[in-house]
Design a protein around this nucleic acid. Structure first.
Lengths: 200, 200
DNA sequence: ACAGTAATGGCACTCGTGGCGATAAAGCCA
DNA sequence: TGGCTTTATCGCCACGAGTGCCATTACTGT
């Protein structure tokens, strides 16, 4: 999971920290002072590393809460590709989205903490656009493959955007309601959307 | 439209510039050097005003391309409120969205230039989340009114998000294709979405 | 021990942003 | 005309994110 374990000791100087360590320290501080009032210096100090080094692990302060989203995204692409070709397109996409959002509860920081921070901090809400774009692209490419279109065509793009819309709505409702489970809200959203759009 | 005209000369020192003037200067520079490499100093200098003064007109550099979106948004709320109660909800919302996106071609910077800048500059794409949130809220409130729900409930939120998804997709396609007209792409997107979601 | 290698981390710089207070340019009124 | 009030401008300083540059450090392999 964490890079230290995977990465066979290369030749040079050993790493001084890890993504996991940085995220833990950062989330502690975010919890104490809030995201905006936590400086990179503070994070670096708590990790016991130079500020400059943080930028070797995360492109920006805003990327820290997302962790290693690249890897998560790769998992999502696999989920999409694994959907059976027989089922209708919208079912395939919806299933992949729902599966993608079944998270193990043992992560640390928890998925809920992550998403709460991201979705309640204005700056992070804005910055997340970049992650969302990559997520949408995964969907658009899948749809393009199945419909013999280009990812930049109207329908693939649209389905990517609408799937994101549904997911974001589900997340907001889920965060508002402690008892809700995410896959359930996603399903509920989807059926409401169909009810809204489809002529009787 | 512009504030100078409306605002009857108040008592104190007269204003040194206007939103329109700042936007023109800014768009000139954005065109020459790109958004990111245009500093606020450069804009202030071209307008002939102190850098500090720019912040009295726009909350941030990122807000300049959006112009006075508050006013635009107020117009959108009126469009929604003006929809007849008889037609189905999704028709009402869609009509308001389409009407909202009929823009007069005489604006300067043109609507197309504005949107191209916003949608092709990563930083602006991210920052636009704030404008979008206000736009979605207008829809959510309208839907809540018509369905006797709260704006924070699943369905109003969802319809706001999905409408935005559709609009953004339409904008991207519209910008890619010089010959496309925006209302047409919006309609096309909507019918494709219905086709995608609704069981035949 | 020495060379090679790769991560660290300090330094200096740019830029957006916000606070504070001084100042300029008008109108109002005597 | 001269002061008073009002309101916008603008300079100055400080902070934090982000970036390029480069010396340094701590390993591995020979």
């Amino acid at each position: 999971m964490t890079d230290q374990d995977v990465r066979r000791r290369a030749r040079g100087r050993p790493v001084a920290t890890s993504h996991a360590e940085i995220e833990q320290a950062a989330f502690e501080l975010f919890g104490e002072r809030g995201f905006e009032r936590t400086t990179l210096d503070a994070i670096a100090e708590r990790v016991g590393v130079g500020r400059r080094t943080l930028f070797r692990y995360y492109q920006s302060k805003n990327d820290i809460p997302w962790g290693q989203f690249d890897q998560t995204l790769a998992g999502f692409r696999k989920l999409l590709a694994a959907q059976p070709h027989e089922i209708p397109l919208h079912d395939a996409v919806h299933r992949a989205v729902v599966d993608f959002n079944r998270f193990p509860d043992n992560a640390r920081p928890s998925h809920r903490d992550r998403m709460r921070l991201i979705l309640t901090t204005p700056e992070l809400r804005a910055h997340s656009v970049h992650q969302y774009a990559a997520w949408r692209a995964a969907i658009a490419e899948y749809v393009a493959r199945r419909t013999n279109a280009r990812p930049s065509d109207l329908v693939p793009r649209l389905i990517g955007q609408v799937s994101l819309a549904l997911a974001l709505t589900a997340y907001e409702v889920w965060l508002d309601d402690e008892s809700a489970d995410l896959p359930g809200v996603l399903d509920e959203g989807m059926s409401n959307l169909v009810r809204y759009l489809c002529p009787t």
